[in-house]
Design a protein around this nucleic acid. Structure first.
Lengths: 235, 235
DNA sequence: TTCACAGTTCGGTGGCGGCCGAAGCATCTT
DNA sequence: AAGATGCTTCGGCCGCCACCGAACTGTGAA
């Protein structure tokens, strides 16, 4: 079996602590330079260089040269989902000593990006609000935007053009994503990405420094409360 | 960050060739003995024992003692999905020398189990047939069983009891799963599992020896043709 | 009881791979 | 042109871990 060796190689690549840290850092969808990645991984630039070469060689990362910088990002959403599923298993299982959660970790649990959508307490709360309002149906296998939800998103300026599957136009579907910190589903997929984009563009949330954490702005608090019915304790 | 080290550990566990082979072999959802797993991994029993101990210690595998045998199986569907996503990345990327596909591999491409549902050409064909007939809607983010499809499955004896999300009963959703050999989605999730169970119970398909491959029976050919509109060239 | 077999534990060996220091390119600045 | 910065390649060191032989435990069969 050919794929089996490749499977082991991919998993092995993700299995090194330094490379894992890099993948983790790239999970917000942004592109980072080699030096920055060396920093988050806690290794010297030359070591990081080797790791990054292997990761892009295998196709996990995509590179973009820009002047004397090299920007690395996850090669595809598929890679992001792989990292996501690994993270789920890693956090769900191994209940051994849940280590002291530092302030950085706390910020991540409050709100963070998960590749292209919102996760953490905020992400789960948003999903809950949309379900409660009847805009979205969520089950373990998948999700569905209701007609009412379609109008709701349209009001927000999000046009969820219906995809075509085969020759029939289908309903607007969305993907639930089990949150590794909250253990409950938040909104992923195309709808989740659109919602995240809107929230960033509207200034409801802002990316925090060099981490994946998100900060809810004052304007965002109002928007999430008025439009999504959220009572945020994310302060 | 605490989870990061655990992430690396899980990935690292999956990254060893022998352990990868074991996970791969367990992907059909059955439980195998330690000796059998040693066989598929190509290592001696004592080496396999060590691997199995680590895998179950980490929570990837579940053990069941039965007489002087020890049956190992994947610990949860979450683990199966993790392996699945790793497999997707491993096969999609790394276009380096697609190795000669042996007969065993050919059998797997024709039809196989993917944890609890049907994959391979048969799986994709079934999904296509259901979509064409209007029983199921599939998009990249998720899938949906139509009212018509609900009746169809009911006729087959599959009762897709509606899940409850919050206090509202939702539509029946299903999960599309990108097939690593066909590069197209097949039916996974609760619906896919039910369909696989039915096909096995009805004798339409049979598990082949000790592999994940499936063989379509003569009765199955007729059933898939008459009920799902499939023109099988799976011979 | 004795044997056979499944599975594990232990000890020792070997190799792969991650790590850094030093040096080499490439690019931008002055 | 000279220097600074980002990144890479090279060489050597070191540790971890997969592997097997051998011996031990426990279960089932004769």
């Amino acid at each position: 079996m050919a794929t089996q060796a490749q499977f082991a190689e991919i998993a092995s690549l993700a299995g090194d602590p330094a490379r894992a840290a890099m993948l983790h850092a790239l999970m917000d969808g942004r592109a980072l330079t080699a030096s920055e990645l060396a920093g988050v991984a806690g290794v010297t630039p030359q070591t990081a260089s080797g790791h990054l070469a292997r990761l892009s060689e295998a196709g996990l990362l995509a590179v973009e040269k820009q002047g004397r910088h090299r920007y690395y990002r996850l090669a595809s959403a598929m890679v992001a989902q792989m990292v996501e599923s690994l993270m789920q298993v890693a956090s769900a299982l191994a209940p051994t000593r849940r280590v002291a959660t530092g302030p950085r970790d706390a910020a991540l649990r409050t709100a963070r990006t998960c590749y292209d959508h919102i996760a953490g307490r905020l992400g789960v709360a948003l999903a809950d609000g949309l379900v409660t309002a009847g805009h979205v149906d969520l089950a373990s296998d998948g999700g569905l935007v209701t007609d009412q939800g379609l109008a709701f998103f349209s009001d927000l300026g999000i046009d969820l053009a219906t995809e075509t599957s085969g020759r029939r136009t289908t309903r607007v579907l969305c993907r639930p994503c089990l949150d590794w910190s909250e253990r409950r589903p938040h909104l992923a997929g195309r709808v989740g990405a659109a919602l995240c984009d809107l929230s960033l563009a509207s200034g409801w949330i802002r990316k925090v420094d060099g981490s994946r954490a998100l900060r809810v702005t004052r304007k965002g608090e109002a928007a999430f409360r008025d439009r999504f019915g959220l009572a945020l304790d994310t302060e």
